[in-house]
Design a protein around this nucleic acid. Structure first.
Length: 890
RNA sequence: GGGCGGUUAGCUCAGCCGGUCAGAGCGUCUGCCUUACAAGCAGAAGGUCAUCCGUUCGAUCCGGAUACCGCCCACCA
């Protein structure tokens, strides 16, 4: 009776089935008192705002491969899943949704989105904090599940019972604890300082959230008349509207052109304010005119310069990027309108000397792309230098291994140039800053619990801080807060420090660096022992995938089309460390073909197994259960086929299996996913399928004569099973499905919980490998010769001649396989070499082959081919000779 | 301005410690529906490993320079 197995592998139903099964059985929840060493990784929590994209899929694939590999290698593995509340991103999305509900008739598009955003922002303030937060939570409930469903479908072997969210109540406790502790240590402070301000989002931003863009701008040269009207100083600026806030002009103290002006004053045009000329090293004499207008309230450099010279700050631009009252006649104008007006008025007065084109880099808001305005404002900051020092040391002394090296270099470079971090955000969705202000005595109270009264003056007039923390502040606690910190939980004891972190290089500073700093500070331990920085997924043209470009591939769509296993494999085999991945459907297609190949190999084996007598099948199942520590099973019975021939292939494949296992272990330990993937791909297809299965075909087609399993079958099953195990971290679904269909696996255990390596090093057998290579070379030479002579249609006879008696005997023993695989009719064997005529084909160093055939060969073509071959051989001969004549080489 | 990476077959890319590495997939060409797989099988063609200069007995690999391409950081008005 034939087993019904479809010829073409269709992953859809199989993958969805196992995906659900794995979750329902809580397969990846580590046992509470397991013996093995623990291995823990916490997921880089995706933002609840987004559905997963190809970058996530790469990340989850790499993590999952690693975790499955560790789990199958005996570790007690925990992969903690979860999501991030993404303060600013979520707030924007919810605002936009509210805006859209209010204005449902707009045709969707970028313009509408802008209008919705503005309207939503207005409505948010109207509806108030509490109601708005309610909407955010609703949104989270509705959308957070998408990520989980996607991850389940991708087969991520996470422990869902430990799923966390950065705004879980207990997580919030960790955030408050952190803030209070760092405040008490003086590492968090509140100050008036110049910050990056987004006038659209109406919040401060950290330096990292400002994206610099190269833009073509202008450099305007403006004349500032000297106070005594004895002339003027010309300054160059890219932002003329800020001149209204100028409180000085600065020149370099060594600049001879201006040395007589230092200490004198100019009259600020348009406002007629008298401001001093100061000398400061910061000024580059070579740039512009060598004289700089100083606007302390709207330029970070000028802010610092003003501090050095005790200059006043005059804010002329407000939080909405409109001119303030201090801007005099320009008050109320938008900053760009004000620029035009200022330029116009300066030109009118003959004070605009000239205008040059000037490329400049301009800061924009990461979220909304609005040009950021540097503004002085009262914010919370974190001192970074004291945190960076140990974070740098931990990496330099190897307590944390960062790979690849490019990631490490970036990390070091960033850490060495670190600035204080503005952590407060004028947003609502997020962790509230645990600070209160006493109206009576101006005391600032930072506390773990809501204070009832001011500890200093007992006043009850306390105002809670309205701001929330930068999302990355809470994310920085992720490796330990997910495990229960600050409580001394069992999970923390077992799984902290995490063993590994895998993330994209785009968040190395946002997140990776900050986790290390916070981990070291708060837990006095590294948060993780290794950090692997993975590449970006780009499209086939190496373009960054983005919605606006329309080149985004949705993982679920690609997965539905080709199967998760194929997509995972395509990603893994493309993931060479340090380089971005050009991802295309073509690639996925070829690994779908690989999945199909695996499927058919399984189908072939199962079909043949089915033809075996029931008694033999039963015996085989028993022989395989429990799975023995593998190696070549030893005896191969002689069922008509030649003993040596049968045994050789088995010995060879076991040896190869051992080698591939070792290779994969080595590659994976070093995060070289592409190498490990390639090893198993090549082994499975081009060794197991192309040679081993072909070789043993006749052998396994034989019905077993007795009621015991033939060792050929035992070997075959063991080899196939081992291969599935090696493949499993990469292609979890198809391997789970096939392994369940094999005999001896009736038990309900999943392949994902069994051993990665079933074959020990004792299977290594260099003699068999070498012998098999000789045979393979002979077969390939015969095939080549046939194809080159246009003999593919016929089955020629052949003569094999070798002066190596041992080889000759081997060939004779394996005659049947050679004839079958090379497509030859008959072989005869001669000791010695063949005469050197055109028909002689060299096989290796000591063997010749000759074909006897009917079809005439194209003599001219053959001659050309041989000439070419000759020159090739001569070349390598010459090289070998050079080397051998070379004393140093020898 | 600072830092980092890339340049290998028509295309997309591997190639860790310098000498059996000049490789894979896709594409192209030839022959095969061989009783697991045409999403397959057996073959073939195709490369001065960007350029120049060093180190070395020997360089795709190490060092330097150049030319393109790309990324990250950056308080140069």
């Amino acid at each position: 009776m034939e087993v019904e197995i479809p010829k073409v592998y269709s992953p859809e139903s199989i993958e969805t089935y196992w995906a659900r099964e794995w979750v329902e059985r809580k397969l990846y929840r580590p046992a509470d008192n397991a013996a093995g060493p623990s291995f823990c990784l916490v997921i880089p929590p995706p933002n609840i705002t987004g559905s997963l994209h190809m970058g996530h899929m790469l990340e989850h694939t790499e993590i999952d491969i690693f975790m499955r590999w560790r789990r199958m290698s005996g570790d007690n593995v925990l992969w903690v899943p979860g999501t991030d509340h993404a303060s600013i991103a979520t707030q924007m999305i919810v605002e936009r949704e509210i805006g859209r509900e209010a204005l449902p008739d707009l045709a969707p598009g970028p313009d509408a989105a802008r209008v919705w955003q503005r309207e939503g922002q207005r409505l948010r303030i109207e509806m108030g904090r509490e109601k708005f937060l309610e909407r955010c939570w609703q949104w989270k409930e509705a959308n957070g599940g998408t990520i989980r469903r996607q991850m389940e479908r991708l087969g991520a072997s996470v422990d869902w019972t430990r799923e966390r969210f950065t705004m879980d109540p207990s997580y919030g406790q960790a955030v408050i604890e952190t803030f209070v502790r760092l405040y008490e240590e003086g590492l968090i402070y509140r100050a008036q300082y110049i910050v990056n301000w987004c006038p659209r989002c109406m919040t401060a931003l950290s330096d990292l959230e400002v994206v610099h863009e190269e833009r073509q701008g202008k450099l305007w040269f403006i004349r500032y008349p000297l106070e005594d009207s004895s002339g003027f100083v010309t300054v160059a600026t890219t932002r003329p509207e800020t001149m209204l806030g100028d409180t000085a002009v600065a020149v370099n103290p060594t600049d001879a052109r201006y040395s007589n002006l230092i200490g004198r004053s100019v009259k600020l045009p348009l406002l007629d304010r008298v401001i001093p000329i100061v000398a400061d090293e910061f000024v580059d004499p070579a740039f512009g005119t060598g004289a700089v207008k100083v606007t302390p309230a709207h330029d970070p450099n000028d802010f610092a310069l003003a501090l050095r010279h005790n200059l006043p700050r005059i804010a002329v631009i407000d939080a909405k990027a409109q001119m303030t009252d201090a801007a005099g006649p320009y008050r109320g104008l938008d900053r760009y309108k004000a620029r035009d007006a200022v330029l116009h008025d300066l030109a009118d007065r003959g004070l605009l000397e000239k205008t040059l084109d000037h490329a400049l880099s301009i800061g924009t808001c990461q979220r909304c792309k609005t040009v950021v305005e540097p503004l002085v404002s009262l914010q919370w900051f974190m001192k970074m230098a004291p945190l960076a020092e140990p974070a740098l040391a931990a990496v330099k002394d190897g307590r944390i291994r960062i790979q690849p090296e490019s990631g490490l270099k970036k990390y070091v470079n960033w850490m060495e140039n670190i600035h204080d971090w503005c952590i407060s955000r004028q947003l609502w969705w997020g962790h509230r800053i645990p600070a209160w202000y006493c109206d009576a005595c101006n005391e600032v109270i930072v506390s773990r619990k809501d204070p009832a009264s001011c500890p200093k003056c007992q006043s009850h007039q306390l105002r809670a801080d309205q701001d929330v923390l930068d999302t990355w502040f809470s994310s920085a606690l992720w490796p330990f807060a997910t495990l229960g910190w600050p409580e001394p939980t069992q999970d923390l004891a077992r799984f902290y420090p995490n063993n590994l972190m895998i993330m994209g290089e785009d968040i190395l500073f946002f997140w990776g660096a900050r986790m290390i700093m916070m981990g070291l500070k708060l837990t006095e331990e590294v948060p993780f022992r290794a950090l692997y920085v993975h590449a970006l997924v780009r499209d086939a043209e190496r373009q960054k995938m983005s919605k606006t470009k329309g080149n985004v591939l949705n993982p679920l769509e690609v997965t539905a089309k080709y199967g998760t296993d194929a997509v995972r494999f395509a990603l893994a085999i493309s993931a060479a460390p340090g380089t971005d991945i050009a991802f295309s459907e073509d690639k996925v297609e070829s690994y779908r073909a690989f999945a199909n190949k695996i499927w058919n190999a399984g189908r072939f084996i199962l079909m043949n197994l089915d033809r075996q007598p029931a008694s033999a099948r039963k015996a085989l199942a028993m022989a395989l259960e429990p799975a023995p520590e593998l190696g070549f099973a030893g005896v191969v019975e002689n069922h008509g086929t030649n003993h040596a021939q049968a045994e050789l292939a088995h010995r060879w494949i076991f040896s190869r299996l051992a080698a591939v296992t070792a290779e994969m272990n080595e590659s994976l330990a070093d995060f070289r996913f592409h190498e490990a993937a390639y090893s198993i791909y090549h082994f499975f297809w081009h060794e197991l399928c192309d040679w081993y299965l072909e070789w043993v075909k006749p052998e396994i087609a034989q019905p077993a004569p007795e009621t015991r399993a033939s060792s050929a079958w035992i070997n075959l099953m063991l080899v196939f099973k081992s291969s599935l195990h090696l493949l499993h971290p990469f292609m979890p679904f198809i391997t789970e499905e096939l392994s369940r269909r094999l005999p001896g696996a009736e038990s309900s255990s999943s392949i994902s919980l069994s051993k990665f390596s079933l074959v020990g090093a004792r299977a290594e057998d260099s003699v068999s490998e070498k012998e098999f290579e000789e045979l393979r070379a002979l077969v390939v030479a015969a095939r080549n010769a046939k194809a080159e002579r246009g003999l593919q249609r016929e089955k020629p006879s052949a003569q094999v001649a070798s002066d190596d008696r041992r080889l000759l005997a081997l060939f004779r023993d394996c005659q049947e396989a050679i004839l079958r695989l090379a497509g030859l009719e008959a072989l005869n064997f001669t000791h010695g070499r063949l005469p050197s005529d055109a028909e002689r084909i060299a096989v290796g160093a000591s063997t010749d082959l000759r074909l006897f055939h009917e079809t005439k060969v194209d003599a001219e073509a053959e001659r050309a081919r041989l000439e070419k071959e000759k020159s090739k051989i001569e070349q390598s001969l010459a090289q070998a000779r050079r080397q051998l004549e070379n004393q140093e080489f020898v």
